[in-house]
Design a protein around this nucleic acid. Sequence first.
RNA 1: ACCCUCGUAGUUCAAUGGAUAGAACAAGUGCCUCCUAAGCAUUAGAUGCAGGUUCGAUUCCUGCCGAGGGUACCA
Length: 554
Amino acid sequence: MLQERNIIISSITKYIKENILISLIDYKIDIGSEDFSLSPPKQESFGDLSSNIALLISKQIQKNPLEIAEEIKKTMLHQNLNDIEGITATKPGFINFVIKPSYYQNNLKLIIKNQENFGKNFKGKGKSANVEFVSANPTGPLTVGHGRNAVIGDTVSNILEWHDYNVTREYYYNDAGKQMRTLGQSVESRYFEYVKKPFEFPSDGYQGEYIIEIAKNIANNYGKSLEQNDEKFLTEAEKVIFGQIKNSLNSLGIKFDTFTNEKSFYKSGAIKKLLSQLKSKELVYQKDDATWYKATKVGAKQDKVYIKSTGEPTYRLPDTAYHKDKIKRGYDVIVDVFGADHTDTYPDVLSALGALGLKTEHIKILIYQFVTLVKNGEKVKMSTRKADFITLDDLVDELSVDIVRYFFIMRSMNTHLDFDLNLAKDQSDKNPVFYLQYAYARICNIIRYGENQGFKFSEKFDPTLLNESSEIKLLKLMSNFPTMMETALETLEPQTIAIYLQDLASSFHKFYGNCKVITNDEKLSQSRLGLINGAKIIISIGLSILGVSAPEKM
RNA sequence: ACCCUCGUAGUUCAAUGGAUAGAACAAGUGCCUCCUAAGCAUUAGAUGCAGGUUCGAUUCCUGCCGAGGGUACCA
């Protein structure tokens, strides 16, 4: 039922496209419906949908595009199309379509009827998805940079879930590498410092206060006579820091389903197996005491090291085993959220998997650019090792979950994000997220007010009374919601939703300024209650996907 | 040196190859006897530089300039 309805919603473009193709028969042009556009023009005065078809074929058939547009228009007018109020041909050769208001008005009824399911096309029904994100090694608190990763990953998961995918949120960390060893050494030396024994702090050790705290706790809990290389230094540190990380994520409303670590792939023998499989494909060789991946054989410019001359693998090898494991688990979609520092690494992982005959087309790598923190007008360089960072917790404390989440997804992933701390703080009451929330709270307030005045909202309202331009505009935007969500699924770019919601909220605020909802005109009041109830549903869906709260009062 | 991402208003960011490049913040001017002024209306302000492809380029290609990231032995 739902599916059927939403096909109707998005089908107006398909419907028009098909009819355009029909009108082309005389030209004997072979053009697929994907090869020309039919989309809302920037300029409202051109109508609701515009097509560039005439411009595209004018060269082939040696004719002025405007003339072609006129001819297509005439043909289509004869077809007497449903829901089309008018067709025009303009300047260079665009064909513009004006859709009847009734189309949008009737759509409102569908929104009210389907409530939070409005716009769903269930593309992920019966399918599963795995989203790997954050994946920070537990060497210190999460920083602002991890925040962008965390919020993108969680929101992408929400987008998939909304489309009915069964989503696994997964956190992967490297616990076998150098970073963790350095962490253990750092704690160890702080421990000896605390118990007043000779110590030597590693030159590249982690310098944060939290290391000292962990060392103190170890001394308090396990006594002061631990020896060098006791594994408690690392295991305790990992336990404590992971606890903090989970708390930080929790305070952002993020929960993981699975934590996977690198060590498990050594234990299970997966890495050995992977190496021998790659060897049999002649993709692995020995040189200078190191084991190399022959990336050049599959198109890379340089071979890469799998196992260093010290006998320690680089991250590439376990990462490949890990992705092989994920593929074998049978997900329909696998998403990795990586920072820009991974740009060069994932092609090696994918090419190795591909060489083993595994399918990798369903792996989507989302690369986001780094966050530059700006404080007092200066850029802050952050390093976990030097403890020179602003933690995610600090950010959430100073701002709020809603602001932090919204701030991280309101920009496209591949923009280098400048996060001005002073600005975010000073203007917190003018933050764009409040604009959305205020629209929602305003709607709720009108509904409350209406109830106090004896207006009970009924689904039997008459949508055809909504004819003010601000009403039509709002209705049109609401009709776009399903298409917008489809785009969000295709691109896995949360920003799409944020921008849409800004538009919708703006449209609502303008409507609020122009039209009074609760008036003496009972029928009109009912219609407008229908309108704002529809807007409420859509804002609510959008905010919940973004993980931002929808307050009934502000 | 090479590779990737990016360069749009004073600032932070939008814009499936389309028509007059959009917002927000900051600056100026209006609007609460009326459902919340966290709002609305309105003024001013931008595609780094040079070429190319195209009917048409912020978008695609080449070069230059600038920012960030990467280039086995951090992940």
